[in-house]
Amino acid sequence: MSQLDTKQRILQTAAELFAAKGFDTLTMRDIAAACHIKAPSLYNHFKDKQALYQATLQYVFGQQGGELEACLQAAVPAQQKLDNFIALACRQMAGDVIFRQLFIRELLVPDEAHLQFLAQVVMADTCRALHDVFVEINPKCDPHFLTTSLMALLFFHFQANPLRPMLPGGSEQAQSTEYLTANIQAMMQNQLQK
């Protein structure tokens, strides 16, 4: 197995473990054991747990971020960029539990250094591009509020999906990715018309 294959396997395994257990509860030995390698071998790829964690966040978010940014850079009208972005983000949320869990874990167990890295390194380009699209649609909008509101809608609705059918008015249709996409798009359009 090549160095690149081993590193990718480590990142994938670390993502699953960090999403399930969090940063503080895991040791490098735990991660090495889950990767079926010895701890010293893990240190050949990452100098410490913090470096591995940051690389894991970049790996997981990078898998999603490139496609999302492409939606926001496409040569189409701004509203279509936003609608395409929301549709893709909804598909990603529905299909990638690890991505959702890592992000939500970061918010629930806030560590300022982790949050700064997430905001300034991992998410910055996508958020800036989204900000620009919001301003292109409505120059008078609050793009920061809209960006954080869209993140909240995406993460909350998909993370809460198992609970939704049990709540009053819940239905299978209201759990579908298509239903959530259409309603999140409508909410954003409504907010941008103000």
Rank of each mutant, 00 (worst) to 15 (best):
D30R: 12
T56N: 08
M187Y: 11
T148S: 11
M151W: 15
T177H: 00
E112V: 08
Q79M: 15
L115I: 14
R29C: 00
L4P: 00
L42D: 06
C141F: 07
Q185L: 00
Q193F: 00
A20T: 07
I104F: 04
K49P: 07
L130P: 06
T27C: 09
F23S: 02
P165L: 07
Y179L: 02
A75W: 02
V97Y: 03
Q79N: 07
A87T: 13
T13A: 04
L102C: 08
E112N: 04
D111Q: 15
A174D: 12
K7E: 14
E178H: 01
Q185Y: 00
H144T: 12
Q116K: 14
F158P: 02
I137G: 03
H36K: 15
A20R: 15
G22R: 08
N183P: 02
Q116P: 00
Q54E: 15
F134S: 05
F158V: 05
C127Y: 07
M1I: 04
G66K: 12
Q159S: 14
V135A: 04
A160S: 12
A19W: 09
I31Y: 04
M28R: 03
A55Q: 14
E178Q: 13
Q73P: 00
Y59V: 02
E136N: 05
L72V: 05
R29T: 15
Q3E: 11
G95I: 05
M188C: 15
A14Q: 10
A15E: 02
Y53K: 01
P110G: 02
N138I: 09
Q191M: 14
M1R: 10
E106N: 14
Q193M: 08
L146P: 10
Q64M: 10
I104S: 10
K81I: 00
Q80A: 10
V109L: 11
T25H: 11
F145I: 07
F85L: 06
T6N: 10
K38D: 13
A152I: 03
E178T: 11
G22Q: 06
M93T: 05
F18C: 03
P162W: 04
R128G: 00
G169I: 03
V133E: 12
A129I: 00
L153F: 14
L146S: 03
H131R: 11
A186Q: 14
L150T: 14
L68E: 10
V97P: 00
L82T: 02
P77I: 06
Q101L: 13
Y179Q: 03
P165T: 03
A113P: 02
R100N: 13
S176D: 11
Q191K: 11
